[in-house]
Design a protein around this nucleic acid. Structure first.
Length: 478
DNA sequence: ATGTAC
């Protein structure tokens, strides 16, 4: 792909070089990352996305870009409500995959036996491919959950109402319509609320290891040396099934709306079409399911931590810093050429990052900007950043979402050979337990880029600025 | 990511 470097950390794929594009594509990455990025087909996917109709300004790729279904992971696709298209490939299979971060008023030094804590967590958190949990929902109750998201979880006894104010969109997309969710999707989801999943999903106890921005950290209640809980999970089989169901629908709509796409995986329909409305309503259900899921997982993990410290869960002082999605399409408003425009922003492996003062932030976060949670790998660290001033213009309020792989899962397993990743991590005082036999090899630290380099790109561009770094202590995986 | 194929 022909890339033009327009300034430090910004590369452009230009319409002068590829006239088939309707808008330019922008890649945010450092010089040293370019070679790896050029090695897969992700930039071709980005260029293909720029050929869709009705895009606002451009398409964008974050430094953790890699190959995905349709739009690359790490891609942002903003479209005008009145002339753009919705594409399920712009969201991906794991609808509202996202991350949540919690802090405890407990010092790292008080955690004397992390090996025991990881066992407590592993026992309490259902995880693994296809695994169900302890909550079985009737059809009626499922419908309620899909409409209400996090609020359903709070009303069902999982957490506090204040948690909603520390969740993106208050943990609910109001467009959710359960009648657009297939029976099969409902069935797959009905016993999976409160389950972690597998692959790169994880639940981790860590500690704040470094503060970059003291003011923002203080404001949010992040203190060096305190224990944290991070949860990375999504909408499980429900979201997967919804995506599968609608991909079939959208492949058939191309002819109907006379849209030509360079890649069937970018099948789409006008925003204002029956198909897009139905997809959006079903996608919103999956998003709400994922928020309820993480809300419940948080409560299960908090009770495991309480068990370990031999205190009652209600006496354990914890605080939800934020919960943010990184696979979603949302209706948002942006000032473009001094006109307020309704935009549907597809974020796929991209985290929303609202700058200070944004109207969608709750009052208590207006001053700091939105917390942007960026998980790394299980052997190094994760970051929390705050949305800053260049986010609207550079990326429609979006930042990176993680480290990004350097080795495919298959390659990682092969490279790991007969290494014992759990023992290697234990030597670094990180205690991991995993249900899947291959998971730890697939997810070993060497399979990922150093997230510090990824985060530095968005930090230097002033899309989101570094607030704190978190180091893992106990990790459970599916 | 995912009852890793309907």
């Amino acid at each position: 792909m022909k890339l033009n470097k327009i300034r430090e950390n910004i590369y452009k794929i230009s319409r002068d070089d590829y006239p088939e594009m309707n808008v330019p594509a922008f890649l945010y990455a450092s010089d040293m990352m370019i070679e790896d990025i050029q090695n897969d087909q992700s930039l071709t996917q980005l260029k293909n996305a720029a050929m869709l109709p009705g895009i606002a300004n451009g398409v964008y790729a974050m430094p953790d870009i890699h190959y995905g279904y349709g739009l690359p992971i790490g891609g942002v696709l903003p479209v005008f409500a009145d002339k753009g298209v919705i594409t399920p490939g712009g969201v991906g299979f794991d609808i509202n995959c996202g991350v949540r971060l919690i802090t405890f008023d407990i010092n790292k030094s008080e955690l004397k036996n992390p090996e025991s804590l990881v066992k407590h967590l592993y026992k309490k958190i259902p995880c693994g491919v296809g695994e169900g949990g302890n909550i079985k929902l009737s059809n009626k109750e499922m419908k309620k959950l899909l409409q209400e998201g996090s609020k359903w979880a709070v009303n069902s006894g999982y957490g506090n109402e204040s948690d909603l104010y520390n969740t993106e969109s208050f943990g609910c997309l109001s467009e959710a319509d359960p009648s657009q969710v297939s029976k099969r999707a409902m069935e797959r989801g009905s016993d999976q609320c409160g389950t972690l999943g597998s692959g790169n999903h994880f639940l981790e106890i860590g500690s704040v290891d470094k503060i970059f921005d003291k003011k923002t950290a203080n404001f949010w209640g992040l203190e060096e040396g305190k224990l944290t809980l991070m949860i990375h999970s999504g909408s499980r089989g429900l979201g997967h099934q919804i995506c599968t169901d609608f991909l079939k629908v959208f492949e058939r709509t191309l002819e109907k709306y006379k849209i030509s796409v360079p890649d069937k995986q970018l099948s789409c329909a006008p925003v204002d079409s029956d198909e897009s409305r139905k997809y959006f309503s079903a996608m919103a259900c999956a998003a709400n399911f994922a928020w309820a899921n993480r809300q419940i997982l948080m409560n299960l993990a908090v009770s495991a931590v309480a068990d370990y410290f031999k205190v009652k869960a209600e006496n354990l002082n914890y605080r939800l810093i934020y919960d943010v999605a990184h696979n979603i399409v949302k209706k948002e408003f942006f000032d473009l050429k001094s006109k307020n425009c309704e935009i549907y922003v597809h974020r796929k492996g991209a985290t929303r990052a609202l700058p200070p003062g944004h109207k969608d932030l709750p009052e208590h976060l207006k001053k700091s900007g939105q917390p942007v949670i960026i998980p790394g790998d299980m052997g190094r660290y994760s970051y929390i950043l705050s949305g800053v001033k260049n986010a609207p213009e550079l990326s429609f309020n979006s930042a990176c979402h993680g480290a990004g792989r350097v080795l495919s899962r298959k390659k990682a397993v092969k490279t790991a050979g007969d290494r014992n990743i759990a023992i290697e991590l234990k030597d670094k005082n990180i205690y991991v337990m995993s249900r899947g036999k291959k998971t730890l090899k697939e997810e070993m630290p060497d399979a990922y880029k150093d997230v510090a380099n990824v985060v530095d790109v968005v930090h230097n561009l002033k899309i989101a600025e570094k607030t704190a770094r978190i180091k893992p202590i106990c990790v459970i995986k599916g």
